[in-house]
Design a protein around this nucleic acid. Structure first.
Lengths: 142, 142
DNA sequence: CTAAAGCCTAGTAATGCAATAGGAAATAGG
DNA sequence: CCTATTTCCTATTGCATTACTAGGCTTTAG
């Protein structure tokens, strides 16, 4: 499985926040309820996003989370790479375990490299605003 | 990780067998030595391939493994789907757990579907013979 | 001061992955 | 028939990761 629940939830949360941007800071409780995700589990995920400055969190009454950039400036790729650690399709390409001893002669390495590029290029080409549902009309109701 | 060692090893073994087709049946021991893979672990992998009729295994003296089709008739996709179980990038698309309750309204589902298609289409487009190293020349030595 | 929120560090249960163990059955050659 | 060789089959183990929970601390608005 390339993307685990952590990454999937993170993406859904980012879309949720993008859709509710107009409402200002959104408390975790609200997101969890809307998305049907355990509050405690969400904490971990949001903490990761905050530490990477993708979200700003504020404590206390009236606190909550808000995007730090406009939705079109987030790519799905960066969100997933952050929460998943890596999007490499095979261990051979993962940052830490750099190159197995057979990489010089490996007949399959090119397949993995091409696949890796395919995946990352696609996910880096999709921005958050492309996933936001069209506004319900509140903006132009008289 | 989309593809685990099982799938990677399987692919390498298939390439190995394609490259040594001319030698007839190849015993597991030989493949394991050439590829630097534990014999016992390889057993599992080869058993899977045999059960799916991708390889033919024969026991006893002079036995070993051989491809059941010419290399250009295997795709990397089918080899990996068999050994990995599935190439779905997220659990949402995995055969068994068909569709989560939110799939109707899920803003991210299309991303996963597109990614899934991208991955499978690419891997189904690469055939085994594309990975086989050019012959060393034995065929045309006088 | 207090209630509402995020922040932080652990801990745990379950799953899946990688690898190993031991033996049964088949086959070829002497 | 005997033996060495080789695949086939069923379990089991150790390990790492994933998904999720627990409990308490800190910040902020009113």
């Amino acid at each position: 499985m390339l993307v685990s629940t952590k990454g999937r939830y993170a993406l859904r949360v980012m879309v949720d926040l993008a859709e509710h941007q107009a409402a200002g800071r959104i408390p975790l409780k609200e997101i969890a309820a809307r998305q049907g995700i355990s509050e405690k589990y969400l904490e971990n995920i949001l903490a990761t996003l905050v530490r990477a400055n993708m979200l700003s969190g504020m404590r206390g009454k009236g606190g909550g989370y808000v995007l730090t950039r406009p939705p079109e400036q987030y790519t799905v790729g960066e969100i997933l790479r952050l929460t998943e650690g890596s999007l490499a399709p095979v261990a051979c390409l993962d940052g830490d375990c750099k190159g197995c001893s057979r990489s010089d002669e490996c007949p399959t390495l090119d397949v993995w490299k091409n696949l890796d590029k395919l995946i990352n290029d696609y996910l880096d080409g999709v921005t958050l605003d492309a996933l936001v549902a069209p506004n319900d009309g509140y903006d132009y109701v008289i």
